[in-house]
Design a protein around this nucleic acid. Structure first.
Length: 257
DNA sequence: ATGGTAGCCTTGCTA
């Protein structure tokens, strides 16, 4: 079996003690990281390799940054989402490991919706749809994981009213997310769990964690070949309760052999 | 009441 996890760490340097603790305890085979907030040469490679992980990184100063960690070598790495050579934001990395094609995705937030950030998000999602279509045609065992910055339905947010004008809940965002699913991808958590109000992100502000005021925006999307092997999927809330926590917590799935 | 927190570096911007 293979465990694949996704985690927006909100700075890998600030999160290093927490990240090392969680990697050591949960011991996932493959980890998709987002919001590294560092350049390639600032990535704490030695510490992470010390836990037995290979690492492929697409860094960026201050913002964004994504990586794939794996206990096996990672080959055929693709850095950057195809479709716009002028887009320099480090939000996508893809590679092959454990016989899986995996991607770490940090989808643009898109707020505020009246700004240029929202059309950038939608255009980025259109590129992701197109690339996900190409990947689907490869008929590989594929896991597209990451911070999608999309709340799939009103059951995935503590207060739909408060998020009515938020880019994470806009019909245009949700529609594009569904377009990926409609290509034939399975959202792993929702395939196995049907309770509403299970979250992967809680804002730092206003005591959101203590009040369980969260949103579910971190997702693992599985190609049919991967979905056929889906055995378990869950949200690991423990890291969010630690000191110096990321505002996101890991989501993982287990694929049978 | 437009606050509150966290992380980075641009002591404002992003989330």
């Amino acid at each position: 079996m293979t465990i694949v996890a996704t985690w927006n760490v909100n700075s890998i340097k600030a999160r290093l003690p927490n990240a090392l603790e969680w990697l050591g305890a949960a011991s996932p085979d493959v980890v998709l990281l987002q919001e590294l907030k560092c350049q390639d040469d600032g990535f704490p490679r030695l510490e992470i390799e010390g836990l037995g992980y290979h690492a492929e990184v697409l860094g960026q100063k201050s913002y964004n940054g994504v990586a794939i960690l794996s206990k096996e070598p990672i080959t055929d790495v693709l850095r950057g989402l195809p479709g716009n050579p002028e887009d320099e934001q480090a939000r996508y990395i893809e590679g092959t490991t454990f016989g899986l094609r995996v991607a770490s995705i940090y989808l643009p937030n898109g707020n505020p919706i009246a700004s240029e950030k929202f059309p950038y998000k939608l255009a980025w999602m259109d590129r992701l749809i197109s690339h996900a279509r190409d990947l689907k045609a490869q008929e590989e065992t594929t896991v597209l994981g990451g911070d999608y910055n999309v709340v799939p339905s009103d059951e995935d947010v503590y207060s739909p009213e408060d998020f009515a004008d938020d880019a994470l809940c806009q019909p245009e965002s949700r529609n594009r997310f569904r377009q990926i699913l409609n290509l034939g991808y399975t959202e792993a958590y929702r395939a196995l769990h049907h309770e509403p109000n299970r979250y992967s992100f809680w804002d730092y502000q206003g005591g959101a964690w203590q009040k369980d005021h969260g949103v579910r925006i971190d997702h693992l999307l599985l190609s049919p070949q991967a979905a056929d092997r889906l055995e378990e999927c869950d949200i690991d809330r423990k890291p969010r309760g630690k000191q110096k926590a990321s505002d996101h917590t890991p989501v993982w799935c287990r694929l049978r052999d």
